[in-house]
Computed example of a mutant assay.
Amino acid sequence: MTSYAIEAEGLQKAFGETKALQGVDLFAKQGTVHAVLGPNGAGKTTSVRILATLIKADAGHARIGGYDVAKEAEKVRATIGLTGQYASVDEDLTGMENMELIGRLLDLSKRDARARAAELLEWFDLTDAAKRPAKTYSGGMRRRLDLAASLVGRPSVIFLDEPTTGLDPAKREDMWGVVRRLVGEGSTVMLTTQYLEEADALADEVTVIDHGRVIAHDTPLGLKRVVGGQTLTVQPLDPARLAEAAALLQQVSGNKAESPRTGVVSAPVKDDAALTEVVARLSAAGIGVTELSLHLPSLDEVFFSLVGRRAGDDKAPGGAAKEPAELDDASTPVAV
Score class of each variant (00 low, 15 high):
285 A>L: 05
280 A>I: 05
317 P>H: 09
280 A>E: 03
247 A>L: 02
244 E>Y: 03
258 E>V: 09
285 A>I: 06
284 A>V: 02
315 K>Q: 10
256 K>E: 14
284 A>F: 06
289 V>M: 01
243 A>Q: 12
238 D>L: 00
316 A>Y: 07
307 V>C: 12
283 S>A: 14
253 S>F: 03
310 R>W: 12
240 A>C: 02
283 S>K: 07
312 G>S: 15
247 A>Q: 04
315 K>C: 14
227 V>E: 10
270 K>L: 09
264 V>N: 03
245 A>K: 05
259 S>E: 10
301 E>S: 12
275 L>W: 04
229 G>M: 05
259 S>K: 12
316 A>K: 10
295 H>W: 13
240 A>M: 03
250 Q>M: 00
266 S>Y: 06
242 L>M: 04
302 V>E: 13
296 L>F: 14
291 E>Q: 13
266 S>A: 09
241 R>S: 05
301 E>H: 14
246 A>F: 01
236 P>C: 09
263 G>R: 03
249 L>F: 06
258 E>R: 11
223 L>M: 05
298 S>V: 12
312 G>I: 15
250 Q>L: 08
258 E>M: 14
273 A>Q: 00
294 L>A: 12
279 V>R: 11
279 V>G: 06
267 A>C: 03
220 P>N: 10
284 A>S: 02
292 L>S: 06
240 A>F: 01
224 K>T: 04
225 R>S: 11
310 R>N: 15
301 E>Y: 12
258 E>L: 08
225 R>H: 11
275 L>N: 07
245 A>Q: 01
224 K>C: 12
278 V>T: 04
291 E>H: 11
282 L>G: 01
277 E>R: 05
260 P>I: 06
255 N>H: 10
269 V>M: 01
300 D>R: 14
282 L>T: 01
237 L>Q: 03
230 Q>K: 07
261 R>A: 13
240 A>Y: 01
230 Q>T: 00
233 T>V: 07
274 A>H: 02
243 A>D: 15
265 V>D: 09
223 L>H: 08
268 P>H: 05
279 V>I: 05
312 G>Y: 15
241 R>G: 00
256 K>Q: 12
317 P>L: 10
307 V>G: 09
236 P>H: 11
289 V>N: 07
232 L>R: 02
227 V>S: 08
235 Q>R: 13
245 A>T: 03
317 P>V: 07
271 D>G: 01
226 V>M: 11
220 P>H: 06
253 S>Q: 02
228 G>S: 11
285 A>E: 06
234 V>Y: 11
221 L>P: 08
254 G>D: 11
283 S>D: 12
298 S>R: 14
275 L>H: 06
279 V>H: 13
255 N>E: 09
286 G>T: 09
304 F>L: 15
254 G>F: 08
314 D>P: 13
231 T>V: 04
309 R>W: 11
262 T>G: 09
266 S>Q: 07
290 T>Q: 07
257 A>K: 11
241 R>M: 02
275 L>E: 04
298 S>N: 10
